[in-house]
């Protein structure tokens, strides 16, 4: 029981790291980026290539995948995304689906359609017994890293100058511009950071979530649920939403394998009926 709960937490943490970049994109620029998963997939493949082809240590691969996808995000933001901030949602949806299709076919072309496996360092594989609860070492590692990241994110947002600028820009873009905040720059950096996090999440998640060219499509719904249930105004909203989703999904697949895949949809529908404006929306009428 507790093992499953722990697995669910690890899964939820990963989802949070994967999706939190998207909450900023949405909250700040009102941009619906369905291609967020493509960045995560890029991170995963970078790790696979670095480890399996060049034999680089897993621990080095993680920051590398963060950096490379962050740069990739920055480049794409400056060249393509920035032109569509003012476009309507249909355009954004079509554009980002286009990116998804390209990344799926591209991954297939370069890496092949099979599931990618990574060989974890020995100290991270296997399970250990903690007070009678079987805990996967790698999942423990995931939980620790993701918690640290979540805390760091919360601190960056609440304590640093960049964080306060970002929050100001999310709250009211025009006012922020008026205050002399360089919103496009703030956003470009945030977009890059969010993409980097997605890449890191993809790298860490390759073991737990699996990695194949369909990754961006498979996880699109998870990201959307995390963001629309958790809202875009806080860090804690998406975090809780991701945890809820992770635990429900893992528990559902374990306890009721026949209907396991439907647990998240049921969750989504219940949430829609109870809280149509998101689990943690700001007051009435937004």
């Amino acid at each position: 029981m507790l093992t499953i709960l722990f697995d669910g937490i690890a899964y939820g943490m990963l989802l949070f790291i994967l999706a939190c970049g998207l909450t900023v994109t949405l909250g700040l620029m009102n941009f619906i980026n369905l291609a967020h998963g493509a960045f995560a997939m890029a991170g995963g493949y970078i790790t696979v290539v670095l480890m399996n082809r060049y034999g680089i240590s897993f621990y080095w691969c993680l920051p590398a995948s963060f950096l490379v996808t962050a740069i990739l995000g920055l480049v794409l933001e400056r060249t393509l995304y920035q032109w569509l901030y003012k476009a309507d949602h249909l355009d954004q949806v079509l554009f980002s689906i286009g990116i998804v299709f390209m990344s799926v076919a591209g991954a297939d072309y370069f890496m092949g359609g099979q599931q990618q496996l990574i060989n974890l360092p020995p100290e991270l594989s296997g399970r250990m017994d903690v007070l009678g609860v079987g805990i996967g070492r790698y999942r423990l590692f995931t939980v620790v890293v993701c918690s640290l990241l979540a805390i760091a994110l919360q601190l960056i947002l609440s304590k640093t100058r960049f964080g306060s600028r970002l929050r100001a820009a999310v709250d009211d873009r025009r006012v922020a511009m008026g205050l002399g905040i360089n919103v496009p720059l703030v956003f470009a950096l945030t977009f890059a950071f969010g993409s980097g996090l997605a890449g890191l999440g993809g790298a860490m998640g390759a073991e737990i979530l699996g990695l194949d060219p369909n990754f961006p499509l498979k996880f699109m719904i998870y990201f959307l649920i995390v963001v629309s249930v958790g809202g875009t105004s806080t860090v804690s909203g998406p975090f809780l939403a991701a945890m809820l989703l992770g635990i429900a999904d893992v528990a559902g697949k374990y306890y009721v394998p026949a209907i396991g895949p439907f647990v998240i949809y049921a969750l989504m529908i219940v949430m829609l009926i109870l809280r149509p404006n998101g689990l943690f929306s700001r007051g009435i009428g937004r």
């Binding site: 963001v227 629309s228 439907f262 949809y265 529908i269 404006n277």
Partner: peptide, 28 residues
């Protein structure tokens, strides 16, 4: 009734979710 409320984002999530759910249903 699920797409009546909320923003474009929730509608995207809902319609995508219903689509995936049907696909999963057919598979199961």
């Amino acid at each position: 009734f699920l797409i009546l409320r909320g923003s474009d984002l929730t509608r995207l999530m809902t319609t995508l979710g219903i689509g995936l759910m049907m696909a999963e249903l057919a598979n199961q």
